[in-house]
């Protein structure tokens, strides 16, 4: 069984502390600046364009399963679905995982309720396609072509099928916004989609769209923790350089501290 070491515990607790500090500051009304990200601005543009054309939109989270990333995607789905409900347009949410299907369905219902359009909510808008990668890709392609979607949101976790999904949207002339933390798929989205959110920008999208104080405070806390990590990396690099110059065989102090276990036996 995998267990954390003291460094991981300290890091998690520190993260929690910093998070609480900035969330409480944001709740007290302190303005926390979030820089504009063109990809997030493009969400509204995509929605507007699809509605003007009278075409539906598709929202896929790819091969995602339940986890923090999916939760971040749900925030965006809620925003998009609420807008779609207000404009009386149509949204399709094809799903790869049955658990994801259930939560996406609940989010869609919640969004329609927020827009006071619950009567327009259609449970068949959220569709379970397959939990096989390429069967899912083929189902998504079919849906995009059949329904002639005007906009597509690819927010989530993707693998080799990413280009197939994005090309399907490209073929029907849909405006596409993609966001993923799957590093290997980012180039494919950049070349095929109109806008791409990279890595943590996906997590930031929820904060940006909802203007929620907790999420904004959390963004600031993330930046602080990233600074800390960068400082650790610089410290480790300096120590490693000195260790290499002195030809010492002893593990460097920073490395020992970061990778050290609870007990000397490596429990």
């Amino acid at each position: 069984m995998e267990h954390a070491n003291p460094f991981a515990l300290i890091f998690i607790l520190l993260m929690g502390g910093v998070l609480f500090f900035y969330v409480s500051q944001a709740r007290r009304g302190k303005d926390i600046y979030v820089r504009r990200i063109p990809g997030i601005d493009a969400i509204d543009e995509t929605l507007g364009r699809s509605v003007e054309l009278g075409r539906p939109i598709a929202f896929t989270s790819g091969l995602i399963s339940i986890g923090p990333l999916f939760y971040a995607c749900l925030s965006v789905l809620h925003y998009v679905a609420e807008k779609i409900a207000r404009f009386s347009s149509k949204i399709y949410v094809p799903c790869f995982d049955p658990e994801v299907l259930v939560l996406s369905d609940a989010t869609l219902q919640s969004a329609y309720q927020s827009a006071n359009r619950l009567s327009q909510y259609d449970p068949t808008d959220v569709r379970y396609l397959s939990n096989n990668q390429f069967a899912y890709a083929s189902g998504y392609m079919g849906l995009v072509h059949r329904e002639n979607v005007g906009g597509a949101f690819l927010f989530g976790s993707f693998a080799a099928e990413s280009l197939i999904l994005a090309e399907a949207g490209q073929q029907v002339g849909a405006m596409q916004v993609a966001a993923t933390t799957s590093n290997e798929q980012i180039p494919f989205f950049i070349t095929t989609c109109d806008h791409t959110l990279i890595g943590e920008e996906l997590y930031a999208a929820g904060a940006y769209l909802s203007n929620n104080s907790v999420q904004r405070g959390s963004l600031r806390a993330q930046d602080i923790m990233k600074l800390l990590l960068v400082a650790l990396i610089v410290l480790g690099t300096i120590q490693a350089t000195f260790a290499a110059l002195s030809a010492s065989e002893e593990p460097i102090a920073a490395l020992k501290w970061v990778t050290g276990s609870w007990s000397a036996k490596g429990e």
């Binding site: 998070l19 923090p68 997590y203 930031a204 923790m225 990233k226 990590l229």
Partner: peptide
């Protein structure tokens, strides 16, 4: 760099959930 950013954002999201 992208991975670090995503990992920290994921951690923050986990704490919030």
């Amino acid at each position: 760099a992208i991975f670090f950013g995503s990992a920290i954002a994921g951690l923050a999201m986990s704490i919030r959930i």
